[in-house]
Design a protein around this nucleic acid. Structure first.
Lengths: 211, 211
DNA sequence: TCATGTGAAGCTATTCACAGCA
DNA sequence: TGCTGTGAATAGCTTCACATGA
């Protein structure tokens, strides 16, 4: 069956919420409660979960820790993923020190930058290395995921280097043209686009309120 | 007519590309070339533009600077928008110093933080002020857009303060539950979710390559 | 009775196919 | 002929309605 792209993003959101519930000692939850906690319609919560088989009990709801475990299995987060970060500027520092990264199953195993003033300093406990060391770290930790926080001018070059080192899933900040290829998945997050959407939403009265 | 949500994001992308073309002195462009340059299907490029009336000439293409101007008008970027940033940590610094912000029509008019060690220092030429000064700056510059870069624990409080000060479009980093309301549009960007999607995409062979 | 799971219906977005015009 | 603009067809996603089972 074809799983909607957006379902995956929502599963991550449910997982996030389930962790909160578990911390608060809550053992059972209904689709309605998940819906309320995540801002998603309860029908959709059930639909999303049903793509992977039912995890709940009719008339009862879902077992929090079981559902959490199941979603972790679906999203492939039963172990944590090693990632590298290229670019040790302000953004790179912000990314590396984001607690969510670790909490949600990623581990920064390498930070790279060609700015010599940054090299050898540390970021979130990981020593900053020059770019030429990238391939060996990728090989050593079998890294498949790379995050690029360099200025957009340097972006294509870094993406290319990552691909050639065996990294096949790349996240860039700011948009990277011509980046899709058969060698790697490249995704961009761009907060300025989100701002632009907000400006437009404000104009367009017909869709004034999100969700 | 109802404009698809995603169309707006793509318009921003086209605009971005048109700026590049203009800088390179290119005066005319076809939907096919825009498509290639932005990674969007050319039918969709034309469809998106047609929602707002046709800007091109049949058999010829689009005039770059005219199309640029038209899209700027659609997205409401004929003048630049004042924004404030709350949170002057690493992420706040990265956001404020992002050249795209200014290039794409936003101007940071205030940065706020309650960490006293940060107050009175500057970020991208704007003095960091304590939170209590937020309402007066919002009023002075008639700010409608706020960016929140504080740790997620402090998020709801900051969002509330912004709403009460007259800000009605808010961008947060990391997900903010219960944030939607009739008073303001709240959007979240969350790079960890994007990473999670990449991990899943790698698993799901049927949608191995994006775009 | 309550809440899940799921086919069907409805809605949104994209692609197709082609008419219209330089 | 070449490229835009657009209705129609298709694909993708969400909501509805209800059967199913605790």
């Amino acid at each position: 069956m074809k799983i909607p792209e957006v379902t995956v993003a929502r599963l991550a959101r449910y997982l996030y919420h389930l962790r909160c519930l578990e911390e608060r000692g809550i053992e059972s939850v209904s689709s309605h409660e998940i819906a309320f906690g995540t801002g998603v319609n309860s029908n959709l919560v059930r639909k999303d979960l049903s793509y992977f088989g039912g995890f709940g009990k009719r008339g009862v709801g879902y077992d929090v820790s079981n559902l959490k475990r199941q979603i972790m299995k679906i999203l492939d987060f039963t172990k944590s993923w090693p990632v590298i970060v290229v670019g040790a500027g302000k953004l790179g520092a912000a990314v590396c020190s984001c607690p969510d990264l670790r909490e949600r199953g990623f581990q920064v195993v390498g930070v790279f930058d060609n700015n010599l003033r940054r090299v050898k300093r540390s970021l979130a406990g990981v020593k900053i290395l020059p770019m030429k060391n990238l391939p060996e770290v990728v090989e050593q930790y079998e890294v498949k995921i790379g995050i690029v926080t360099v200025p957009k001018m340097a972006l294509p070059e870094v993406v290319e280097l990552m691909k050639n080192s065996g990294i096949n899933r790349i996240l860039t900040f700011g948009w990277c043209p011509y980046s899709a290829s058969e060698k790697a998945l490249v995704r961009n997050v761009d907060f300025v686009t989100e701002l632009e959407k907000l400006v437009f939403k404000g104009k367009d009265f017909s869709c004034q309120f999100i969700r």
